[in-house]
Amino acid sequence: MHTPPVWRIARENARLIGYRCRRCGFVEFPEPRKTCKRCRAPAEFEEISMGTRGKIVSFVVQHRLPEGFETPLPLAVIDLENGARVYGQIVECKPEELTVGLEVEADFRVFYDDAGLRVYSYKFHPVRG
């Protein structure tokens, strides 16, 4: 929350706020836009809560990553309940439990350390019981 790029999307990042195209329903996140990627045209957007649950569209298990990551690290493309698609790291899940379609829930976590200051965002864990 101190570098300008992180500060610019602080609200959206901390509260999973997205912007939905009133014409086609595409959810822009985390920066608000005035043009729609799906309509390929200028569009009006409304602020929405993206919800905290979603489904895995596809996934990988990362085995080779630079310093700053622990491996094996599951990574997924996730469709959130209110229409947004995001990248998400999966926590509290064994690699063999991952499947396409697995239901996951947002989990607030440390992402990285920037000059001693931790920066936070959401990872996802499988929906429990």
Partner: peptide, 22 residues
């Protein structure tokens, strides 16, 4: 590494691996 939603930890093999899994 210092990314929140913009492909943090997504390597080239991961990007294409996501397509492989799907």
């Amino acid at each position: 590494v210092k990314q929140l939603w913009g492909g943090r930890g997504v390597t080239m093999p991961a990007f294409f691996g996501l397509h492989a899994t799907a």
